[in-house]
Design a protein around this nucleic acid. Structure first.
Lengths: 343, 343
DNA sequence: CTGTTAGCGCATTCAA
DNA sequence: TTGAATGCGCTAACAG
């Protein structure tokens, strides 16, 4: 049987409240008493019960992180950053991998373990406006990605339009003329995909290049196999492309592999750019030029927004923060074949 | 203000107990009553408070997963599997990234959010025997990795000795004679590293090859940069190696990159094998031969062991399960340069 | 500075 | 089958 405050109080000959004060460092407790209580705590091996504390105080110190998947490098790195940022605030992270399925996302959004978590950091894939419960119902929520809802929730996003345009601009600047795109999505819910596609198109326009719809390849999900398939499709159906913009690094890594299998040289024949800057791309062959998203900033900001909302204004106007991005040039567009690593 | 059972009871004109019965499907409740209560629940949007339920029942439905890091592919994939296996049991996973630091691991081991989690799945890196609290103190625990403690906890492991020996055997079978190893660790706590090193040596002996200590390279941590550094060290200091066994895939991916940079052809000049079978290795160039660990089985088993312990015998004798491994041959040791993907 | 008294929301005794 | 009372372990008021 676990020791409770009652036991400690009895042992130390004080009241239960005094024990509480010692444990929580609240109020000033006389040194004498404090020492006696501390001794009792140590002897009994008392540890405060987080559940009871949570029930009483209304705070659990738990934040949920709902992501499509943990094993995609981008989300894995993001999760790592969130866990670290949360730890700095004394929070523990509860993770939910939704698989990007609308149903699971709905469950996540309406509050994992109701009333247990203090807040939710949520990166939806399939959810649309209206699918999120009203701000009043669930716990305070910070959305990662696009504003898929009109609910009054905080948001951390990146300028996906500019991200894709940056990639195109870079390629055009290198003299590439036939720039394909891999990762478009037809689904209504692929908001990020849509924005990156628009950015790609605008990049072409700005560079004075034509938009050839035949150069745009769909990818139902943004993983390596789809990237490889996309590259094969481009090689089979279209002639003479000299660059590919991939809507994330995983797609790009699949593209690199398929191009190599087909005997296409990168960057000599075709240049490739990704988005995200996951570690794999720094060690691939060739290493991958990418538009890096500031994952640490995204994570930190999400935690900060949540903290602010918990600290005070529950119904302050929602805030939206745009995290940074920057082009990282590596071998897949520019570097010499045997360049050293750019870590 | 959130609706509670009291509100629902008042609204439905029944007692709290009846509401509880309806919510938990316990006891038989008259259909009439059930419908009335259900209606009240829906109208008020009542959701049972997980914290209160947990305090009362002693069960939270939360299991903690403590890993060194979430952003290494092996752990990311493992975490994904654990989250899925836990979901199948109705559990939610709370993650802790310890960074492999002894202090943080000690915190994790002694129970994240004391009394809040029902169990712990723990993959220690730096912890040694005795660092784990007694079985009685913390929550039921399943250890992933080696038995670093004499505490009576369940264990899921792999035969690391055989894993490394398998890799060597494969290389020797291909006629490789000078087989190096990357990933040895001097630290007392690197139990996995020690076992794989022993397996490597035994593999050499069995193949009738000499053990040359100059061919063994240390790696403080098992990530790509250390792998690349290891390969450079081997190329610089030692001549004429024709194969490298890496103690995990991340090291191997670093090795592949460094070899390419040095103009060494894989597998023609040097063959490379890893351990884990993470997805990156299936798309690297060349694709990576590896000793695949059954991560899904590891995760599933861990969750099952925990479930068994929670279900009944808290002090049943601890069980140890050895998860499977198998050699997956790809281009880095055998395949032709332009082989198709082996997914 | 410390003790007493109430709950937090739920599930579980007991009665009825 | 349902209702009333009790307590899980803790903290927030208020007293003292």
């Amino acid at each position: 049987m676990r020791a409770t405050m009652k036991h400690v109080a009895a042992r130390a000959g004080v009241s239960i409240k005094t024990v509480s004060n010692v444990v929580n460092d609240s109020h000033r407790v006389a040194l004498q008493t404090r020492l006696r209580v501390q001794a009792a705590i140590d002897e009994l091996g008392f540890v405060p019960n987080a559940t009871a504390r949570s029930l009483r105080s209304g705070r659990s110190g738990l934040v949920a992180l709902a992501l499509p998947e943990l094993d995609a490098p981008y989300f894995a790195e993001l999760a790592q950053h969130v866990v670290e940022a949360a730890r700095d605030r004394g929070w523990t992270v509860l993770v939910d991998a939704t698989g990007g399925h609308a149903e699971q996302e709905r469950v996540a959004a309406s509050g994992i373990r109701p009333q247990l978590i203090d807040g939710l950091i949520f990166s939806p894939l399939a959810l649309r406006a209206g699918d999120l419960p009203d701000a009043g119902t669930g716990p305070p929520t910070v959305l990662l990605g696009e504003r898929v809802t009109d609910a009054a929730v905080d948001l951390v996003t990146v300028d996906n339009h500019a991200v894709a345009a940056t990639a195109v601009e870079h390629l055009a600047g290198l003299g590439r003329r036939r720039i394909a795109a891999v990762g478009a999505q037809t689904t209504e819910t692929g908001v990020t995909a849509r924005l990156r596609l628009e950015g790609y198109r605008q990049g072409l326009v700005r560079a004075g290049l034509p938009c050839d719809e035949a150069l745009v390849v769909q990818a139902a999900s943004w993983h390596r196999p789809e990237g490889a398939a996309g590259a094969r499709a481009l090689l089979g159906a279209v002639g003479g492309i000299d660059a590919i913009v991939c809507f994330n690094d995983l797609l790009a890594l699949g593209v690199l592999r398929a191009l190599a299998d087909a005997g296409v040289r990168v960057p000599d024949d075709v240049a490739v750019v990704g988005v995200d800057d996951v570690e794999d791309g720094r060690y691939s062959r060739p290493s991958l030029t990418t538009v890096a998203l500031d994952k640490a900033q995204i994570a930190r900001t999400a935690v900060e927004l949540l903290a602010a909302r918990l600290a005070g204004a529950r119904d302050a106007p929602p805030r939206a923060v745009v995290a940074g991005h920057r082009l990282v040039v590596r071998e897949s567009t520019a570097g010499p074949a045997g360049a050293t690593l750019s870590p």
